[in-house]
């Protein structure tokens, strides 16, 4: 069977694919945003001295990281309405369910990244800030966090790439993201290659735009020449991406 370029191009510029891609990218962005918002206080919290509540938090985060994302999606979509009647209302859409499930899942992974980044900061930084009479909040705001963000940025960007691909799981709860649009087109026409190629182009464009933005952000955050010299190149990052796919 030959590759029909016109089918490929029609799919590429169809509103269905464009909408699917928009749902994919907005689901990934919104889930990551909520995940990061939860993860920063969570990471600061679990970095403290051990206690009952900290132990419990770690267990919850462990469950969210350990359970398959597919299971979490199905759980939120199917089981939540059984427990809480408010989730039986029509506003509880597949998109919302996917957003909740992926946000929680992402929060758990991102907490791990942030905790490691905070742990990588020399305790001497804290001592120096303290000795200067700074409050704990001032030390966090002006000393620790700016350094931790720099450490956390590359793994965070990788995490987003993974998340972008994981959104395709939401097709099981009938969310019309890019992958389910593709599957539907294939199911009616059986022109696998053309539609899969169109989907691939969308995913790659989204990922490479992200890698480009990440590289720019990292360059802005670099605070000395020696770091920028050891920066992995775009090519290295693309290779790393290919390995994870």
């Amino acid at each position: 069977m030959a590759f029909d370029a016109s089918v490929f191009l029609d799919a590429l510029f169809s509103t269905a694919f464009l909408n699917g891609a928009l749902i994919t990218v907005s689901l990934a962005l919104l889930s990551h945003a909520v995940g990061i918002a939860i993860s920063i206080p969570a990471a600061l919290y679990i970095s403290g001295p051990p206690s009952m509540l900290r132990g419990l938090t770690k267990v919850v985060l462990g469950v969210l990281r350990g359970a398959p994302t597919l299971l979490q999606l199905l759980f939120v979509w199917n089981a939540l309405p059984q427990f809480f009647p408010i989730f039986r209302e029509p506003w509880f859409s597949p998109f919302l369910a996917a957003w909740i499930a992926l946000s929680l899942n992402e929060a758990a992974y991102q907490t791990e990244i942030n905790r490691a980044a905070l742990g990588a900061i020399d305790p001497g930084q804290q001592s120096a800030g303290t000795a200067l009479g700074m409050t704990r909040f001032q030390i966090l705001r002006f000393v620790t966090l700016p350094q931790a963000i720099r450490v956390a940025l590359p793994p965070t960007a990788n995490e987003f790439i993974t998340l972008l691909k994981i959104t395709s799981l939401a097709s099981v709860i009938s969310l019309s993201e890019l992958m389910s649009v593709t599957s539907r087109a294939v199911a009616t026409t059986f022109q696998f290659t053309e539609y899969y190629a169109a989907a691939l182009v969308y995913y790659l464009v989204m990922v490479y735009v992200l890698i480009f933005l990440q590289a720019r952000l990292e360059r802005r955050l670099v605070w000395n020449t020696s770091v920028s010299e050891s920066e992995p190149s775009m090519v290295q990052k693309a290779l790393a991406f290919a390995r994870r796919s």
Binding site: D122, G124, Q125, S127, A128, A131, V143, P146, Q147, R150, W223, N224
Partner: peptide, 11 residues
């Protein structure tokens, strides 16, 4: 206070 390892803020 001045520390053995300077502890300057690298950023």
């Amino acid at each position: 206070m001045v520390f053995q390892n300077f502890n300057l803020f690298p950023h």
